[in-house]
Amino acid sequence: MTPTAPAAEAAPPAAARPAPARRRRPRGRALYNALGVLVALVAGFPVYWMVNTAFKPAKDAIDPDPKFLPWPMTLDNVRRAFQISDFWGPIGRSLVIAASTVGIGLVVGLLAALAISRFAFRGRRAVIVGILTVQMVPLIAMIIPVFLMLNDIGQYDKLTGIILTYLTFILPFTVWTLRGFIVNIPRELEESAMVDGCSRTGAFVRVVFPLLAPGLVATAVYGFIQAWNEYLYALMLLSKEHQTAPVWLGNFTTQHGTEYAPMMAGATLMAVPVVVFFLLVQRRIASGLTAGAVKG
């Protein structure tokens, strides 16, 4: 945290604070634990099965009696996945697209969130309704006109065009979630910082911004996932030359129908960065997501 005095004293949004531990031991904890393990097994199984298939010899993968451990372990499938078509190109493009979308989305969204949470102005209600409505529109329905529009402005088959498109996917959610955080930061906090000689911007940066961190992380992760995963728009708006990771994997599915082991290797490669990133920031995600809604 920034070493500003008021920030330390002030209560951060409740959501960001770790929940008080429940010390009371409910009866049947063992039963709950067993259930919990079962849930973890079921939820984790597809992930495990993907990794398992990825690292076992292709012959074992099509053995009618499945092997539950990838032994003997092999990297052949990974090699084959690389070989089938360019791998780093799509991954690199997906990273660029996701990172740019998140970066721009956060800045632009934060500004909008500030506007609707810190200012009373005419048309505010209309803007809120508008942003909420936009979130309703099923994006799949828009693909035809979005395609025509991007083509009209010369953004077909451009990464900038797809980034622009993805921005609209994440902006409503970003604005709404960040708004939830901002309204929870007492205005007095900013004011006291300003009394201490900070400018309004300075007060914002030193006081408000740190308190927004969980919200920013949560929306960043949400946006990243959306952009990293998106399939249909990437399929229609980019040529093969510029294809993204999901499209790369999608092609792989149709053309090499039954080569499952290399496909799982490709899938693993694509999933690893996201899963790792997620595990690292997961605690912040949860608090971030609820703060926006519960404390509204």
């Binding site: 992930v47 996932i225 995963n229 999933a271 997620f278």
Partner: peptide, 22 residues
């Protein structure tokens, strides 16, 4: 449970479809 949940949440949809198909 959190690890399992987060792992499955963050699986790209295309990957998840592929895994289920398999």
């Amino acid at each position: 449970v959190n690890i399992a949940l987060v792992a499955s949440w963050s699986m790209p949809i295309v990957v998840a479809v592929t895994v289920f198909k398999w």
